[in-house]
Simulated scan of single mutants.
Amino acid sequence: MPLPDQHFELGELELALGDSLPNARLAYVTLGTLNSRGDNAILVLHGYTSSHRFVLEDDPDNAEGSWGPLIGPGKAIDTNRYFVIAPNALGSSYGSTGPGDINERTGKRWGPEFPALTFEDQTNAQQALLAWLGVQQLHAVMGLSMGGFGAFQWAVQYPEKLRKVIPVLTAPWGSLNQAASHQAVTAVLESSAAWHNGWYYEHLSQMQDTLEGIRIKTLERYGVPAWLESELHDAIKVQARLHDMARHWAAKFDANAMLALRAMINRFDVRARLTEAHAELLYVLCRTDSLFPPSIVSETLDQWPKSAGTAKYVEIDSDYGHFASSLDWHKWAGALKQFLDH
């Protein structure tokens, strides 16, 4: 049986930019057991168009790839030893409060009127979840891509709450490669006959066609065709699989969630605050990731405070770009396990 989602009701969540989110909730899954001291927890944060269930091997929505091979009994993140918590981001499409939900103030979907979010809001919501679960101290916070932004945010927002931070295929600021992409995605959505200024919910089938086209371009940018070619060895089959992946994703993801999360990403920048961090750092990039190239590594490592202790860098030698941490998980699993266990 698939591991079911759990849900945490936040109540009214005050937001950093001045609005609030009534009856906010977080969807999440957990693996392992919290110890009696409440200090063996690892918070794992998902990517932009993925879901919290990317920590599970049977997740069908792993839009940036699955970390299931890394997480479980005896694995790099050993759930016999650690309590793993993976929440879905606010504003996403997989169970936490997002634009597709009903706004109780109006009785209709939030749609394009969903409140503006920040990573500070995400971190506050996650901290409320952890307190409710009984977590006293985080052993680590780790995240992939957008989740890595969240990991950096945790390191500067709650520096005393975590021992280790592991940002993967990401950076301490969000506008890297993102602003132009945001503009391009927005333009494609607005050009769709189904868009109706973001009130497209009566035209979902047509909007899903638009989303499928956006997703194919994203998967190409992430390096997925190279992986499919290595698996299928046939150009026609590669294109067919690419379209299948895009269609599956488009049937579930809310176009307004894309814009809400992308806007949040564009607001994110903690480079000036890195000196506030107390956690040990393991920073993971990939040789072929065009979104977060290894050339950016020194900007983070040079700013990480020496008083925090270890600051390590691991570069995944993979041809799979932004999918490398999942498809070539074995190439960094050893470094991850050593960092967590020592």
Rank of each mutant, 00 (worst) to 15 (best):
M1E: 11
H7A: 06
L10D: 09
E12F: 04
D19L: 09
S20A: 07
R25Y: 09
T30G: 08
S36P: 09
A41D: 00
S51K: 09
H52P: 05
E57W: 14
D59T: 00
W67Q: 02
A86F: 09
S93D: 03
G98W: 07
I102W: 01
T106P: 08
R109Y: 10
L117T: 07
F119S: 06
D121K: 04
Q137L: 02
H139G: 00
G143H: 11
G148E: 07
F152D: 03
V156N: 02
L162H: 01
T170A: 13
N177C: 11
A179K: 01
V188M: 14
A193W: 11
A194E: 05
Y201D: 00
Y201L: 02
H203Y: 13
M207A: 02
E212H: 12
I214T: 13
I214E: 12
I216Y: 01
L219C: 09
R221A: 06
E229D: 11
E231K: 13
L242D: 08
M245C: 06
A255W: 05
N256G: 06
N266A: 11
R271Q: 14
L274W: 08
L274P: 05
Y283R: 04
P294K: 14
W304I: 08
Y313M: 13
W329K: 09
W329A: 15
A333F: 04
L336P: 04
K337Y: 06
H342S: 14
